[in-house]
Design a protein around this nucleic acid. Structure first.
Length: 270
DNA sequence: ATGACATGATAAA
DNA sequence: TTATCCTGTCATA
């Protein structure tokens, strides 16, 4: 379930139970055994979310980098964790074995990236990312400038993490529906008002997503015709995976854009 | 049981 | 543009 809101929520939730504690780090699956050994029994100082990336800063200077990709998922358990992990647990972090405080366990399965980096390597990754609307240090002007100068479709641009960090396929469809912009329009053809709408809507939707712990972009929840396929538990969208427009009843268009399926209303978005 | 598909990203061609 | 990686879920059989 990983767009930017998920990542920031993870940083917050795991931060509460893992930071400023010494962790036991292992790789039950084995693929991350060498990396785990580098940070095992180190003290975790902070967890930082940037776009869809997570950085765990350890006292010794090592930085654990995690990117969930499409399939990655974290499990957070009270206690020392299930002895027999279900599935392929790439990374396991256990707090509480050294400080006498309540134990907590984090399991990670299926990530695209899970590696121990140097601070320089962390900086290189962050340097490739555009502003993240969920971060207080985000500069919306960088986003506006990039959109204004590109001929690419705005729907493709929103998935480009070097332009704006944290947007995924669901939020792309929802933001452009809310701003009434056709995803296929060229970035440089958008008005200043429209570009500002995209940023402000992205920020508002992502912040709500962090708060709710899920994607609910539509007002009043389950309003309107049912989506083509049932959304994930508790999630509700305007255009994403719908086949009828919630606002005007038109058939939602579905097409490839930026190597992903895109949904939009041909009447409401133009 | 089996297979299509998924809220992601990269390297190779 | 395509092939590839990673895991779980859902629809179909």
């Amino acid at each position: 379930v990983p767009e930017g809101h998920t990542i920031h929520r993870i940083a917050r939730d795991q931060g509460r139970v893992l930071t400023r504690r010494r962790l036991d780090v292992t790789s039950p699956q084995g693929r991350f055994a060498a990396g785990a050994a580098l940070i095992d029994r180190e003290r975790l100082e902070r967890i930082e979310a940037y776009g869809k990336h997570l950085f765990y800063g350890f006292a010794g200077g090592h930085v654990l980098h995690v990117h969930l990709g499409l399939f990655g998922v974290f499990g957070l358990h009270k206690g020392a964790g299930p002895l027999d992990p279900v599935g392929a647990v790439r990374l396991r972090m256990v707090a509480g074995r050294h400080d006498g405080r309540p134990p907590a366990t984090v399991d990670l399965r299926g990530p695209t990236a899970c590696a121990v980096l140097t601070p320089d390597e962390r900086m290189a990754i962050v340097g490739r990312l555009g502003p993240d609307p969920l971060r207080s240090d985000a500069d919306p002007e960088r986003f506006s400038a990039a959109v204004a100068r590109t001929a690419r479709a705005i729907g493709a641009v929103l998935l480009d993490q070097s332009v704006i960090a944290g947007i995924g396929n669901v939020y792309r469809a929802e933001i452009l529906f809310a701003c009434r912009i056709d995803p296929r329009r060229s970035g440089r053809d958008l008005s200043g008002v429209e570009v500002r709408c995209v940023w402000d809507t992205a920020s508002a939707m992502l912040h709500k997503g962090v708060k709710d712990g899920r994607i609910v972009t539509i007002d009043g929840g389950d309003v309107g015709p049912a989506p083509a396929r049932r959304p994930r538990r508790g999630e509700a969208t305007y255009a994403y995976h719908r086949d009828v427009c919630v606002r005007c009843g038109s058939a939602i268009e579905r097409y490839e854009l930026g190597a992903r399926t895109c949904w939009s209303c041909p009447v409401c978005q133009s």
